[in-house]
Amino acid sequence: MTSVDRSPRAGDGVASPARGSTPSPPVAQAGGPRRSRRRHDGWWPVLFVLPTMVGVVVFYLWPIVQTGYFSFTEWGAFGGQTWVGTENYVRLANDPDLGTAVVNTLVYTAIVLLGIPIAMVVASLLSRPGMRFTAFYRVLFFMPYVAMPTAVAMVWRLIFNGDFGILNWLLGLVGIDGPAWTSTPGFALVAVSVVGLWTSLGFAVIILSAGLRNIPPELYEAASLDGATAWRQFRSVTVPLLTPSVFFVTVITVINGFQLFDLLYALMGQANPAIQQTQSLVYLFYNEAFLRNDKGFAAAIAMVILLIVGAVTLLQFRMQRRWVTYA
C-alpha cells in the first residue's frame, strides 16, 4: 500500500514520442512535450476504469451512502424508515456493548498483530543462506491461510473443548486445569485471537520473505566491512529495509482485524454464554441488524465501524513516515 502516496513514478516527466500515433482520442491537445503522453490517454481511461467504477458505485458505494442515511432512521422490521435524527447515535454512545465491542476488537487485532514479529523471525530463518526445505516450511505455515474457515472452526472447537479437548489435556500434564476455552469470557477472546493469528501468520511470512529477498546484498557487505555485528546488521539493515513490507502487512491485518465476525461466529455460535463479553464490532452490527431486527441502529454501528477503520488507516499512513524507510 505504501506506494499510494509515494512520489511520482520514475517515468513521470519523460516525454513520450508516441503521442502522434495514438489513435484519435476526441480530447485534448498535448499540453507540452513533458506530460503529453498522459494527456493523450483521452477517453481510454474511461474504457478501462468505467466497468469497475460502475460496479463499485452500484454495489458498494451506494449501499454505504444508503447505510449512512438509514443510520438516522428507525426501520420497520421489513423496510419503511422514519427519520429520527441522531437518536441511534445517542443510543449507541450510551450502549455499554459498544465499548466492550471496541475493546474486544482492539484486543483481537493486537493479538493478531503479534503475528508480525513472529512472521519476521520465521521469514528470517527461511532466508538464511544454505537453508533447505524452505518450500516445505512455507507450505506448512501458509496452509491455515488457505483453509476454509467454517471447516477449520470445527476442529478448533474440538481442540479447545473444556472437557474433552486436547489442549486442556496437555495443560493437565503440567498441572493446569484449563477452562472451557470458547465459552468462558476472557478466554474465549484469547481463543478466537489465537485462531486468527494462526490463520493470518502465513500471509505475513510470505510478504516479509519477499521483502527480505529484495534487500540488496551489497548493504550487508558494506555493513560487514564496517565491522557491524550480526545484531547491528539486523537492526540497521534488515529492519529498516523491511519496514515497507511490515507496513503493508500491518495495514491489511488491522483492516481485517476490525472486520472480525466469521471466525467469532463459527467458533462460538450465537448461543454462547460468553458471546456478550466477547462480541466484536461487526458481531454487534450483525446482532442488531439480523437478530434483533433494529436495522437503523445497526446502520449507525456500521457507520462507526467505517469511521474507526478509516481513521485508523489514515493514521497508519500518516505515521508511516516516521518509521517506514523506502530504499
Binding site: 499510494v4 469497475t52 467504477m53 463499485v56 452500484v58 454495489f59 458498494y60 458505494l61 451506494w62 449501499p63 454505504i64 444508503q66 447505510t67 483492516i255 476490525f258 472486520q259 465476525f261 461487526v282 452490527f285 450483525y286 441488524a289 436495522k295 456500521a302 465501524i305 467505517l306 477503520v309 478509516g310 488507516t313
Partner: peptide, 21 residues
C-alpha cells in the same frame, strides 16, 4: 480513494442493499 474506501466496510453491511440491487 473511493474504490479503496470500500475495503473498510465489513461485508455484512452490504448484504441487504446488494440483495435489493
Amino acid at each position: 480513494a473511493l474504490v479503496l474506501s470500500i475495503l473498510m466496510v465489513p461485508s455484512q453491511v452490504y448484504l441487504i442493499p446488494q440483495y435489493q440491487i
